[in-house]
Design a binder for these strands. Structure first.
Length: 472
RNA sequence: GGCCCCGUCGUCUAGCGGUUAGGACAUCGGCCUCUCACGUCGGUAACACGGGUUCAAGUCCCGUCGGGGUCACCA
């Protein structure tokens, strides 16, 4: 069996968004499951729009998500370079082969020639749509010096088909093809040439990409055939749509991978959500990274486009947050605490004790940091509404009593604290719910928090007493 | 408009000729309870429509409608 070689080939024209991340993910999962190779290739032939910052954003996003590549920027394994603009000589040799094979030709038509033909087409049909290059240079056999592009000599009859791993058999009539430009006059390849040549020269065995590329596949197959090389497998995955059903774009909130990092999402949560958006494994919803690698398959990739749903995303994310150990959560939440001006060590015992408390109450690290805030801020930020509602004059005296009740409890931990408070309540014919809210507000500054005794335990005796007495 | 892809609860999906059409998110209600969560129990909710094929169709075929993609010296 030959080694699986898949690739992720983004164009560096912006940040990595979740659609691209999913394409990368499926390729990465397949490479890891099969012990194959993932090649990261930067398709930067659009010099107008490609930027170094975008390359960095892609690399950073992939790295943050933990999707490592075996060959690509920073990892040359002999099939590089991995930036298309550094592979120009390679494209030229392939173009020569294509011309020699009669599958491509030089076209000397100018921009003006084409504009004229396009205008005529529009006048005749009433639309710019459906315009096709008239084939002016198709038959010329000379090769004069001068500005020219390279065009594909597309067959006019027959059809091109392939078996798509996701969509099944796809057949497209060659009469719908046109002699599209393969290489610009400046020697820079266009998408179809660059992709096909690189996939060939990099030994790609499976091309998995978004299904907006279905229409490009026949032209690439034609190139493979003209060159006499074996076809790779193809898998075209449906696109991710906005909640409204339209194409997901930068206009939609939070589609950049880096945004999720900044919002305190877990890479594994992002991967899980993205994996399930278009792929399934029976009824299972939550997958660890390892499970994803083990269970992913092309067979269960759906062929319907999926809508992005933040609510579900958050649920998956929260599930992963809860899977973290206290030490892991502590370590990862520290930078987010720092952003709030709270300097806490990852191994601070209070943090370690508090972590499991906030875990079921948070979706992201930002949430967790917020839920942890009052444990480390002195005095805690007081919610005025909560204060007005619960710290009423008739309740304040109870706070003082509560303070004296817990003062001597030892050890100062949840069970003994609860026992002491419960026996006091029983003695004075009070109910916990009568004193809990005022105490909670005094201790945390908020009307919602983890259990009172857990909070006291984390705060410790001195802080607990101080905060209760400050209000009493 | 041509070509290509697609159509199961609001959303993500299971289903691969015979199911009370299952799960998850969301939503609604109950339980738990010191608040908020978590958890848990239960409810509402789907096979786009019309023809076929078949003893039997969400599953196969055709059409209609609907959605998306694509028609560049972008990728």
């Amino acid at each position: 069996m030959t080694e699986v070689r898949v690739r992720f080939a983004p164009s560096p024209t912006g940040y990595l968004h979740i659609g691209g991340a999913r394409t990368a993910l499926y390729n990465w999962l397949w490479a890891r499951q099969t012990s194959g190779k993932l090649i990261l290739r930067i398709e930067d032939t659009d010099r107008e729009r490609s930027t170094q910052a975008s390359v960095q954003a892609i690399v950073d996003s992939m790295t943050w998500l933990g999707m490592d590549w075996d060959e690509g920027p920073g990892k040359d394994a002999g099939t590089g370079p991995y930036f298309q603009t550094e592979r120009l000589a390679i494209y030229q040799t392939y173009v020569d082969k294509l011309i020699a094979a009669g599958a491509a030709y030089r076209c000397y038509c100018t921009k003006e020639d084409l504009d004229r033909a396009r205008t005529e087409h529009k006048a005749r049909t009433g639309s710019e749509q459906g315009f096709r290059y008239p084939g002016t240079c198709r038959q010329r056999t000379d090769a004069p010096a001068g500005k020219h592009v390279i065009r594909l000599k597309a067959p006019a009859t027959g059809s091109t088909h392939w078996h798509d791993l996701i969509k099944g058999r796809i057949e497209i009539g060659n009469d719908t093809l046109q002699d599209s430009v393969l290489m610009r006059s400046d020697g820079i390849p266009l998408y179809n040439l660059g992709a096909a040549v690189d996939d060939i020269s990099m030994g790609i065995t499976l091309v998995a990409r978004g299904d907006d590329h279905v229409i490009n596949t026949p032209q690439q197959i034609l190139i493979y055939q003209a060159l006499g090389v074996a076809l790779p497998q193809f898998a075209h995955m449906p696109m991710i749509l906005a909640p409204t059903g339209e194409k997901l774009s930068k206009r939609h909130a939070a589609v950049s991978v880096m945004d999720y990092r900044d919002q305190g999402f877990l890479p594994d949560g992002v991967l899980n959500y993205l994996a399930r958006l278009g792929w399934s494994h029976g009824d299972q919803e939550i997958f660890t990274r390892t499970e994803l690698v083990e269970k992913f398959d092309w067979e269960h990739c759906g062929d319907t486009s999926a809508r992005y749903d933040l609510k579900k995303f958050q649920h998956v994310q929260a599930s992963h947050l809860r899977m973290l150990s206290a030490a892991e959560l502590a370590k990862q939440v520290v930078p987010f605490l720092d952003k709030r001006g709270l300097t806490v060590a990852a191994d601070d015992p209070r943090l370690l004790t508090a972590a499991p408390l906030v875990q079921p109450r948070a979706t992201t690290f930002i949430d967790a940091a917020d839920a942890l805030d009052y444990f480390f801020r002195e005095p805690p930020v007081m919610d005025e509404k909560a204060k007005t509602k619960f710290l009423t004059a008739d309740r304040l005296a109870q706070l003082g009593v509560l303070a004296s009740v817990v003062e001597g409890v030892s050890p100062f931990s949840r069970e003994p604290l609860e026992a002491a408070v419960k026996s006091w309540l029983e003695r004075d014919h009070l109910e916990l719910k009568d004193v809990a809210q005022p105490a909670r507000v005094a201790l945390t500054g908020r009307s919602a928090s983890p259990g009172l005794f857990e909070v006291m335990e984390v705060l410790g005796r001195a802080t607990t007493l101080a905060r209760l007495r400050l209000q009493a």
